[in-house]
Each structure stands twice: as C-alpha cells, then as structure tokens.
Design a protein around this nucleic acid. Sequence first.
DNA 1: ATTACTGCAAAAGATTTGCACTAGG
DNA 2: CCTAGTGCAAATCTTTTGCAGTAAT
Lengths: 145, 145
Amino acid sequence: MNHLLQGLKRAGLRLTPQRVAICKVLAESKDHPTAMMIYHQLLPQFPTLSLATVYKTLNVLKSMGLVHTLGDAGDGAEHFDADLTPHINLVCTRCHRVVDFDEERIHEIQQAVAQRSGYEILGARIVYYGLCPECRANGSSKESA
Amino acid sequence: MNHLLQGLKRAGLRLTPQRVAICKVLAESKDHPTAMMIYHQLLPQFPTLSLATVYKTLNVLKSMGLVHTLGDAGDGAEHFDADLTPHINLVCTRCHRVVDFDEERIHEIQQAVAQRSGYEILGARIVYYGLCPECRANGSSKESA
DNA sequence: ATTACTGCAAAAGATTTGCACTAGG
DNA sequence: CCTAGTGCAAATCTTTTGCAGTAAT
C-alpha cells in the first residue's frame, strides 16, 4: 500500500477499488497522466468506471496535497504527478510527453523560496518546455506524437 | 514600443489597437493575468472588444514564444507571463494571486537542464504554490481573494 | 485593393455537479 | 446500518473556431 492510499485512509476516506486503482496508476506511471489517460488505462479493468470518478478522486488527492498538477502540456489537459519530491519536469511541446529530470539544486531553491518569501509552500511546479531529442530529430515542422 | 510589439511586427503581423493594448497590459501588469482579466481590464477602452480576440492574440504571442503560461492558479484559467527571464512565480492557492520571486540560481539550472537533457528548451514554468503571508494571517479555513 | 484581424455566435473540450443507486466500514 | 462513493447525464466554464464585416498596409 503506497502513500496515496495511506493518505486517503488517514483522512477517513474509503478505499474503494476505483480509488486503489487510480492511486496505483498514479504511483506507478512515469508519464504524468491526465484524468483521461488514467480513465482509459483503467477502463479494461473497470468497464463501468466513470470519468467523473477519476476527476473526483484526483481532486481529493490534490486537495490533500498528495499529488501535484503540472498544468497542461500543450494538449489542453491537466497533468498529474504523484512524485512530491522537488524535481524538474520536461514537457515536449510537440509530442506532449512529460519526463522527469534530476537536479539537486532545486532542493536548496525550494528552501530559499520558503524562507525568503514568507509563503507557506505547499507544492511546486517546475516545468521546462521545449522539444525532446526525438522530436528535434524528426524535423522542425509541426507534428504530433 | 516594447518587445512584444516588436516581435509581432518582425513577424509581419499587424499592430492593431487591440493587440497594442493587450501587449501593453501584459508588459505592464505585475499580476500575471488570465485572458479574462485582460479582457475586463480593456473593456472600458474597447467596448466592443471580444474575448476571442484576446485569446487569439495571446495564442499568437505564445506560439511566437513571446509570452509564457504558468498554468492555472486554482482558478481554472491559464495565467500569462510576459517576463521571459528565468524567474520563479509564487501562486497563492487561496487568493489566486501570482507574484514574482527572484532567485539567481535558476539561471544556472536552466543551463544545466538544456545541456544535460538534450531538449531544446523554449520556456520555463517555475511555480511554487502555497499560502501567501496575507492569507496565512487571515485564518486557516477556505476563503477567496 | 488585398489580406489579415475583429467580433460575434456557436462549437468544442475539459472539468464539475446533482442525484439515485451501491457498497465500504 | 448509514454514510460516503460511484456512475450517469446534464451543466458549467474556458478556450477555439467559422464566418461576415472591417481595417491596416
């Protein structure tokens, strides 16, 4: 049982099969999925799953601070990230994929922000956008994944 | 004439009064406005201004890389930023205000990302979200601006 | 003159909500 | 049991699009 499920349980919320599955996708996926991506990924196992349930669960997790949102990746939808450790996300504006990038110094930066700003920092959204190496190689005009 | 207008002109696009006004708002505002905020700010001067025109202009500027988007600030709308220099944005999740924060080290980080990732970096979205000092002082339950 | 731009209205998408039914604890 | 959660459908809200009229060069 991962920290998402623990968080839900700690808050007294029910661990329904849908929620467990959504948390599993979030915890295991490396691709920073949108609500729609999670929905489609789970549909085979939960044929009656509702997109509304996915949204509701994601909103619960987000309001509890258990997941972060990255904003859209050029595809018009919110991308979710269950990795709360400070890290950088790289968004390709052509194929809309999102990957992680490790950079030690952002730990220090987050501390500096918290100390100097007076804000109570609840989360971060550190996204660089541009063209991934593959899309750079595949020519310079506009294509999709 | 600021760099936004110069960019539009350089691309051979027309400098209509609407576009000039929108660029002015973007260049002068410190509050990282949404399309709707720009629209309302200009409505007194342009009573027939269309929200569609605001969106179209913002999309032109964004596709030319002249403005960046920060994602939503808990208010469900995209926030725009005409400051292209690498910097940090602080979003208050309660009052939905966005302010800048200066931190030298992110210049180095952007360079590191570009070099080590193989991405062609086109922009950044460095947002910390949390509670601003004022909202922290104004109690801990949920309120809006 | 030409062609891009605006404004309007309708469309398209993503996300949210109301409600009856179901199921977890 | 008994409340919280699900699924469906409708609603809402942001953003986009088609098109006819208008204006910039």
